[in-house]
Design a binder for these strands. Sequence first.
DNA 1: CGAATAGTGTCTGTAAGACACTATTCC
DNA 2: GGAATAGTGTCTTACAGACACTATTCG
Lengths: 271, 271
Amino acid sequence: MTNEDDFLKNYDPRAFAPVAVTADVVALTIRQDQLCVLLVKRARPPFNGLWALPGSFLRPHQTENGEQWESLEQAAIRALADKTGLSAASVPEILTGIHLEQLCSYGEPGRDPRMTVVSVAYMAFGPDFSEPSAGTGTSEACWVAVSALNLTAERQQAATEFPLAFDHAQIIYDGLERARAKLEYTGLATAFVKETFTLADLRRVYEIVWDTKIHPSNFARKLLSARHLLVATGENTSRGSVAGGRRSALYRRGASLVLMPPILRKELRHG
Amino acid sequence: MTNEDDFLKNYDPRAFAPVAVTADVVALTIRQDQLCVLLVKRARPPFNGLWALPGSFLRPHQTENGEQWESLEQAAIRALADKTGLSAASVPEILTGIHLEQLCSYGEPGRDPRMTVVSVAYMAFGPDFSEPSAGTGTSEACWVAVSALNLTAERQQAATEFPLAFDHAQIIYDGLERARAKLEYTGLATAFVKETFTLADLRRVYEIVWDTKIHPSNFARKLLSARHLLVATGENTSRGSVAGGRRSALYRRGASLVLMPPILRKELRHG
DNA sequence: CGAATAGTGTCTGTAAGACACTATTCC
DNA sequence: GGAATAGTGTCTTACAGACACTATTCG
């Protein structure tokens, strides 16, 4: 393959017009009975002062073998770490118990006024990220209830306290749809709770993300009938709720991530 | 916002190290009772002589307002048109009745030996694309039965007549999974058949994509019970099959794209 | 004890899968 | 007529949703 070798030696990557790639993260968690997304307040143009998803340009870093590029997923993790004031050292730590997955890519011309930017959006689900604090290029970072974003069915925003930069309203909208859909047929809800949890904890996740009430006993029957989704620890909670009540059994994530048969949202049933 | 304006005026996009973005298309259709994917044979390095998905670098084109970049979707359509010998003029035409959707993005360092390349993969589903012919940079283009690719569960290839370039084995594997999954809960099967079709045509799509047998009458009951998925045209086929048989009713896609309740694949039922 | 929560048992309606049976149509 | 396909009717089983009832636990 000397042909291939010659070709590569003479290849000039800068012959192409520049495109930039970013990894943006839609991080979701549940706080105070509300579904919240992690946002940062931009401290520089473009969209200075508006709110945005934590994101980062895909970039090379130095290794002993010279310049080495990071993967999209690494860039997403770095965005989550940088912009929330977590040290790079704690990256493996914040990933413990945090579920990261790719959402979608966005590349409409003009979505970034600087140049053509393709953003690969990721989703992060977690029970409790550490308290955010502003990172480079941002003046603030906080968890914002998604209801406060006033997202419309057209994936835009109505008047809000948190105006979003770029096309991030659209990305967050898509991310929420993904999260709601995945609760139906996967064990994603377990990503929102701590390592051990009760069925009531899980039910609360569904009720908050879907904004519905769910019948407790049927819910328990359904989740426990899915094989290898939940594993009983044999332990119980140390006490009932403040208002009284029996102590409930504790569970842990099982080997399976699929919820079969699925729980279908009422509004979607019957097409 | 003069601050923003100043910032943009002085912004140099070439300050960033180069990344390239491509749109690659996993085009699927059914030919001769086989699920087939569109592949091109590369006629230049890298991976000269190996098979690849039709793809194209995201690039600017000239308009009356100067340089304007295309969207990811436009690049995907262009890849489908260019590399299959269809003229650019026929692009709207080939899109008639072809369903295009984004699959996933791939950006592992080293996946392209030339430079860092992020590929945004799209899926295209159609009843019958026009006959492919080699485009720029390719020596051949044809529909290859996915079974001939010998894809393994690890998203690699076993020995095959069609060795794939880059990480395209992985992309195709992911695309097939997506297609199989979407048959369960959407009307995607209608994208594989002509504008009017019989229930047997649809059933054949399921049987080929899932590689299973499906009970005809239960299948019909299921699809007809999904509201607004199919619309009876009132017409029948002009004749039965070669071997005899009653004439069957013809249907058209309805307004709905969701199949609710879903048809679950046997191997996935019960978790 | 009374209120609140966890968990079990049971009934009912819906629908999936299986299959028998009728209706056509080609050869 | 015989084979093949389209479409209908019905039986059985499984399970979702509803709800009554028991078991705990806190104040």
